[in-house]
Design a protein around this nucleic acid. Structure first.
Lengths: 197, 197
DNA sequence: GTACCGAATGGTACTCGGTGCCATTCTGTG
DNA sequence: CACAGAATGGCACCGAGTACCATTCGGTAC
């Protein structure tokens, strides 16, 4: 069979297995807790060997953590498209709203994962680490708009990511039809108002 | 009726050993890297058994991580002392400056630790986790000043901690006589200016 | 269809951080 | 001086993660 071999049949099978293992793991973690389920158990549930499982997911934590690379790409694309002479906060705001919209799309998945993450300190720690990596990249992109002042850029980027993080948290706890972009906008406005009263 | 009355000889010996082990560990980590030194090696260097070492430090990471409880107590004391009708950002600013002053005191120790922390993702992750715990406490204290709006309080607290984090980072890279409180103030002012231009 | 090559898999043995338990050795105090 | 409780060391164990090897499987060229 060669009709749909453009992505590569092998790669597609691998992708499918990847998703299947992750789904099984998330269910087990959700029911019994991240620390209460061993990698070996997941391997058995997914009917693969421990070796194979570690080939698909380099660490146990990777079974839960998200891959935000595409969402971040959208954020940076937005940032790059904004006029160079626009105030930095305006560009940042636009970029954050795009990020929020990207998150909005797969809310159910996010809810499931974050329930596990927030209940597991080690996962929380790694999630925060991911966020500062993004913060770093965001700061680099903003630095140009702030006359090369790295410290100010980092502070602005950190504040922006903090707004998203806080908004995301209440969004995940809110009713399913709440709009994340609205929440981000409101939170950002609130922060501005509180900082410069 | 024993812990608070006298220094307690036993407790003092324990304290001394605690410091000695940590000093030895920090030196080894600083020279060879956190991941390249095993707990067993540190135990040998410190001339204690692995068991004993784990009684002094529950995890390997605790050999490096800081105990900020006293600094945070100072921050919260300051916050509590501010007039209740003061704008939240003013109280926050005062509290952050107190925190900065507390850090200023033992700069050399902080420099040594942060060199190791920043070079080790796992330590970085746990440090960030600690910071969000503090953020949470700070947000709770601020909530009262913001008419009980938790989301706004969290955003403000997160922004404040982000400012400290960013300022701390450049402070540790700057010349030894730089004043952290100044850096925090400047960074906070810069953030306000950038957010509300 | 067959032969072949590389990817995918399973298994085993290992390292290291961390836990639990027990027996022994201090050490400060009554 | 005696004794309770702390401190210590040693051991056996668990789980995550790594390295390596042998086998099997799947796509492709012929």
């Amino acid at each position: 069979m060669d009709t749909a071999t453009a992505p590569g049949l092998r790669a597609r099978n691998r992708e499918r297995k990847h998703g299947r293992i992750r789904a099984i793991a998330l269910e087990a973690f959700g029911e019994r807790g991240f620390d209460e389920v061993t990698v070996e158990e997941i391997a058995e549930l997914a009917e693969v060997s421990r070796s194979t499982l570690f080939r698909y997911f380099p660490t146990k934590e990777d079974l839960v953590l998200l891959d935000d690379s595409s969402r971040l790409a959208a954020l940076h694309a937005t940032l790059a498209d904004r006029p160079a002479d626009e105030p930095a906060v305006a560009s940042l705001r636009a970029a954050l709203l795009v990020l929020a919209a990207a998150y909005q799309h797969d809310r159910p998945d996010l809810v499931a994962r974050y329930r596990i993450i927030r209940a597991t300190p080690a996962l929380m720690a790694r999630t925060l680490e991911q966020q500062t990596d993004r913060e770093e990249a965001l700061a680099a992109a903003i630095t140009r708009r702030l006359d090369g002042d790295e410290v100010r850029a980092r502070a602005l980027a950190a504040a922006g990511m903090a707004v998203v993080r806080v908004a995301l948290r209440s969004w995940l706890a809110a009713s399913p039809d709440t709009d994340l972009a609205d929440l981000v906008a409101v939170t950002l406005d609130g922060l501005v108002a509180d900082l410069a009263p």
